[in-house]
Amino acid sequence: MTTAAIAALVVRYGIVMLFLPFSAFDKIFSFDHAVKQAQQVFSPRSLAIAVLMVGLFVEIVCCAAIVIGVADRAAAFVVAGYCAVTALLYKQFWKQGDFFADPGGKGRTLFWDFLKNLSLGAGFLLLIVGTDGSGLQPFLDAPFASSHPYGR
């Protein structure tokens, strides 16, 4: 493996490691807690479990695809959307009512978590558009193609 390929592997794993293995294992090993957290947004338990299973799929399958480099642009698109959706559903800083009143309050804490989710999602979008100036066209031409991050 070349130095560039090793660097690509380290960077790709670095961007997904929050999800794979940490968040995925947390959901698996603390399943009841994860269901209760999901029920804060999706009140029927069966719906919360279904949403949780979709989240596990994204965190395991899509993140693995990004690291392996198979259909990695499509997987990065899904994970970017997952980051945005979870920010909107679980990091609702605007609902806390203490954003301006308490610098150490829940609103501020959720605000920073909200921004972290969006920033991480933007990092996944960077995997889609690349840094070589080709932009979105390769993704639009073949969304399920691999970007061949480790050479051909």
Rank of each mutant, 00 (worst) to 15 (best):
M1I: 09
T3Q: 01
A4L: 06
A4S: 10
A7L: 10
A8Q: 02
V10C: 12
V10D: 07
V11I: 15
V11Q: 10
R12Q: 10
I15R: 05
I15A: 09
M17W: 11
P21I: 04
F22S: 07
F22G: 02
F25H: 03
F25E: 08
K27Y: 04
F29K: 08
F31I: 05
D32Y: 01
H33A: 09
H33I: 05
V35W: 02
V35N: 02
K36N: 09
K36M: 13
A38V: 00
A38Q: 07
Q39P: 00
Q39I: 13
Q40R: 07
V41Y: 01
V41P: 00
F42E: 04
F42H: 13
S43F: 14
P44R: 06
P44A: 10
P44W: 09
R45W: 08
S46D: 14
S46M: 14
L47M: 12
I49E: 08
V54E: 00
V54A: 12
L56T: 10
C62F: 12
A64G: 02
I66N: 01
V67R: 02
I68K: 05
G69L: 11
G69W: 07
D72H: 04
R73Q: 08
R73S: 06
A74E: 00
A75K: 01
A76Q: 06
A76K: 04
V78H: 14
V79P: 08
A80M: 14
G81E: 06
C83F: 13
A84W: 11
T86C: 11
T86N: 13
A87I: 07
L89T: 15
Q92A: 14
Q92P: 09
F93D: 10
W94K: 08
K95F: 12
Q96S: 13
Q96C: 14
G97M: 08
F99V: 15
F100K: 05
A101T: 13
A101E: 06
A101F: 03
D102C: 10
G104T: 07
K106Y: 03
K106C: 01
R108S: 06
R108M: 12
T109M: 13
W112S: 12
L115H: 12
L115T: 12
L115C: 15
K116D: 04
L118I: 14
S119I: 06
S119V: 03
A122L: 09
L125N: 01
L125G: 03
L125A: 03
L125I: 15
L126K: 00
L127R: 06
L127S: 08
I128D: 04
V129L: 07
V129E: 00
T131P: 01
T131V: 09
D132T: 15
G133F: 11
G135C: 14
L136I: 15
F139L: 05
F139P: 01
L140S: 05
L140G: 09
L140A: 13
D141E: 01
A142Q: 11
A142T: 10
F144P: 00
A145S: 15
A145Q: 05
A145E: 06
H148S: 09
R152D: 04
R152F: 10
